[in-house]
Amino acid sequence: MYSRAYKTIVSAPPLLWVGLFLLLPYALMFAHSFWAVEDGVLVHHWNLDNYEKLLTNPLYAEVLFRTLRIAGSVMLCSLLLGYPLAYYLSFHSGGRKELLYQLVIVPLWVSYLVRGYAWKTILGSEGVLNGFLQYAHITHEPVSFLLYSPFAVILMLTHIYTPFVFLPIYASLEHIPRPLVEASHDLGANSFSTFFRVILPLSMPGLLAGATFAFVLSLGDFLAPLLVGGSSGTMIANIVQTLFGAVYDWPLGAAISVSILLLTLSLLFFTQRLEKRWSFK
């Protein structure tokens, strides 16, 4: 057993860190969301106006829905890419497993910004993709919807978050005891029903974790829309950024942040419950 003094000394730094840099800022943000700005000055005047603005001004709802749609699409696309990849690696890659695994991980070492700019050079009107399309005589003019659109944001975020989706799915597939798969075949199930009746249900915890990663991380992203989103690809985090910066309306920005935080927390709570339901240890 450890002494009380030892426990206190060991746990104090992380608690202090969490309190100072996490809980305190959250409390401040929470408080700000009930304050107001009058004549360009922040006043500690408690009110619910910020939340009322969020509900009544259709702009915020529109951007929020677009953000949810983009985050949902990124989640779906990265699942559609990440799951088959993880499945192939775990069950059918044979001796190439290690190499392929490393190849999936490598992009994680490349800076987010570098990858963002790379997509700009690929998708732009003078970009690699348009150059190819014209060279191959598929189009005669640069295709403009590629860059500065929700499509570009979804593409870039999918590219960035697919490894994050891949990893937990791969881990949960690797944990499925192979005799279970053999038992399924032995009992008369072909590969198709074995996948849907045994492998998919047993990889649900990884799938849920991956989906949550992709959705939550996309929900709060502001760099991808900034780099490749244009005005039609603006997301809720960009609004918050503008409110805290150029517009100088911290209370409204804080109110949006609190709403997003609550949304994310309830989502995490929900998926955690689901993950528990689907884990069988």
């Binding site: 053999e182 038992a183 399924s184 075949h185 032995d186 072909n190």
Partner: peptide
């Protein structure tokens, strides 16, 4: 024949019951 087409069934060493 693939295993699922054989009229043979197996009791596995660690039973391999489906946990879910």
């Amino acid at each position: 024949l693939p295993p699922h087409q054989r009229r043979v069934n197996t009791v596995f060493q660690n039973y391999a019951l489906f946990p879910h």
